[in-house]
């Protein structure tokens, strides 16, 4: 039963207020969504403009084209950036997820000395402003020869993704029934079997959504890669950043549209996983 329904005895003033509140909320939702949606039609613009041409408003098929998409898929700069992004993000994600899941399991044990301090250190990459992380990594990685290398960027991105893995996996482990592992051990399963056959399937949704967060963190990241990377590690966001700052070309809108589609896919996956996990733990009625 929704609390937002108007009671039948509402006065006119209450009715007016109720509907204006809904209008205000609608406007705020419009503010949230419209900027993202508006770039989608603009990316099919046949002209090199950033606004709707009269032809587009008249739905003239001539005014629409796929030329910006064609540019994205043929321009070597954009292709190289795409390749770099695809080479960096998955490796960083694997590092974050494997180390992060182990640590989250460790942290969820009953007796962990210095738990608060360890947690604070592990979460810190999410709290420290990116520009400070980028500055520190630039200074330190130059000292040890990792600045401007593929490995340097991967390590930096893995560090940035770890808090998300820790948070999501720890949250899943809160609802994990420890007697299940004890039961498995009781029936003769060794720790590895217990982990992979009993614990892992149950916390998998949390691990995957943590992994998706880590992936999107690396895939979207631009500040750290600007400083830690060199021209050889130029990623998609980096290319968009320079594109927006210097020669602003509508290809950016085509790339943006593709990225929006990817994020819709990721968001859907995470939501489905979250609901599945809540259902498994009996925490959600729906």
């Amino acid at each position: 039963m929704s609390q937002m329904d108007l009671p039948p005895y509402a006065t006119t003033g209450q009715r007016i207020w109720h509907y204006s509140f809904l209008v205000i909320c609608g406007l705020i939702f419009f503010f949230l969504i419209a900027p993202i949606l508006v770039i989608i039609p603009l990316s099919f613009n046949a002209e090199n403009f950033f606004t709707f041409t009269p032809g587009m408003l008249a739905f003239d098929p001539e005014a629409y084209s796929l030329k910006h998409y064609k540019d994205f898929f043929t321009n070597p700069d954009w292709q190289q950036a795409l390749v770099n992004s695809v080479r960096i993000a998955p490796v960083a994600t694997i590092i974050s997820v494997s180390l992060g899941t182990l640590a989250a399991i460790g942290l969820s044990q009953d007796h962990v000395p210095f738990r608060r301090a360890i947690m604070a250190i592990l979460i810190s990459p999410m709290i420290v402003p990116l520009i400070i992380s980028a500055a520190g990594m630039y200074f330190f990685y130059s000292r040890i020869g990792l600045q401007g290398t593929y490995i340097g960027v991967v390590l930096a991105h893995a560090a940035l993704g770890i808090p998300f893995v820790i948070i999501t996996v720890t949250a899943t482990l809160v609802g994990f029934d420890r007697s299940l592992t004890r039961a498995a051990a009781n029936m003769g399963a060794d720790p590895m079997t217990t982990f992979f056959r009993v614990q892992m399937p149950l916390i998998l949704p949390g691990v995957i959504s943590g992994g998706l967060f880590a992936f999107i963190t690396s895939f979207d990241e631009v500040v750290v890669v600007l400083f830690v990377g060199s021209a050889k590690q130029q990623t998609l966001p980096w290319q968009m950043f320079t594109g927006l700052r210097e020669q602003i070309s509508p290809t950016i809108l085509a790339v943006a549209t593709i990225l929006v589609v990817i994020s819709i896919g990721l968001l859907t996956t995470v939501e489905v996983l979250r609901r599945r996990s809540e259902r498994l733990r009996g925490m959600s009625p729906g």
Partner: peptide, 16 residues
């Protein structure tokens, strides 16, 4: 959705 959309996407949207 805006939370998941790339930061650069949102910034370029506002620029446009």
């Amino acid at each position: 959705l805006p939370f998941w959309a790339s930061l650069l996407v949102r910034t370029s949207a506002w620029k446009v």
